[in-house]
Amino acid sequence: MTSRYARLLFTPAVQRHQERNGSRRAYARMEAGGGDTDRLGPAEAAFVASRTSFYLASVGSTGWPYVQHRGGPPGFLRVVDDRTLAFAEYRGNRQYITTGNLDGDDRVSLLLMDYPNAARLKILGRARTVPLGDRGTDAGPTVPDGYRAVVERTMVIDVEAYDWNCPQHIEARYTLAELEEVLEPIRDRMARLEAENAALRKAVPEGAVPGGPGGEG
């Protein structure tokens, strides 16, 4: 956990609960440090670039939090630089809840999951929408080549802080693509074994019994 992440989320109320439950001293040490925004490192950038989905939370004027799922091929959530993320807003059900929430409060939280490897990355940031074709943004292309989707706008997120969260209780789940990657060496081994068995059957005459007449006793 970065000190910036702790400083943003460990409010006085949170600290009181940490004190009551014996974790305050350890977390207090994590808060020590500068107040600058976090910079995404190579591990964070690689993790973001390989995700095919994430969860995005915002808060509306009623005070209610709203969480939605965003998905696409690897690379649809792009690391523009070590402090900026961007992704294309594909046309969906046209409720525009997140877009409307950002008009009043630009703070968002992202949850990125890697179920096969039991890893998750939480990111805090400030989001803004950018019209298509707006040359005032350096977000660049956010739609991977060949992906069929109707893009309405680009969302750019300025990263404030992040935290690699505890992997406990993450159940291993696999997408079809991830299963193919895991099963490929198993299928290759099965194919080799089947080829070896076929060669052995061909080498032994049909009906012959190893160790029978004419063989070693």
Rank of each mutant, 00 (worst) to 15 (best):
I123W: 00
N101D: 08
D105K: 03
Q95D: 10
T99D: 05
S109I: 02
F87S: 05
N93A: 15
G104Q: 09
D81G: 09
F87C: 14
D106S: 14
N93Q: 15
N93S: 06
D105T: 06
G100K: 07
N101K: 03
F87T: 00
A88S: 15
R91W: 09
A86M: 05
L121E: 04
F87G: 04
L85P: 03
R83Q: 14
L111I: 10
A119P: 09
L112N: 07
D105E: 13
P116T: 01
D106R: 15
D82M: 04
T98C: 11
T84I: 07
T99L: 12
Y96E: 10
S109K: 03
G92W: 02
N117E: 12
D103G: 12
A88Q: 04
A118M: 09
Y90F: 07
Y90L: 02
N93R: 14
N117A: 11
R94T: 11
A86S: 09
M113S: 02
R83D: 07
L102Y: 05
D81L: 06
Q95N: 09
A88C: 06
V79P: 05
D82G: 04
Y115R: 07
L110E: 03
T99R: 12
A86Y: 03
D105Y: 10
Y96S: 04
S109G: 14
D81Y: 09
R94P: 03
G100N: 15
S109E: 15
A119W: 01
D106Y: 03
R94W: 08
E89H: 08
D82R: 00
I97S: 08
V108T: 08
L102A: 13
T84A: 15
R107S: 10
T98L: 06
N117P: 02
P116K: 01
Q95Y: 08
L112F: 13
N117Q: 11
K122R: 15
D106P: 13
V108P: 07
T84F: 12
L112R: 05
K122G: 07
R107V: 04
P116C: 08
R94C: 08
Y115F: 14
Y115C: 04
D105R: 12
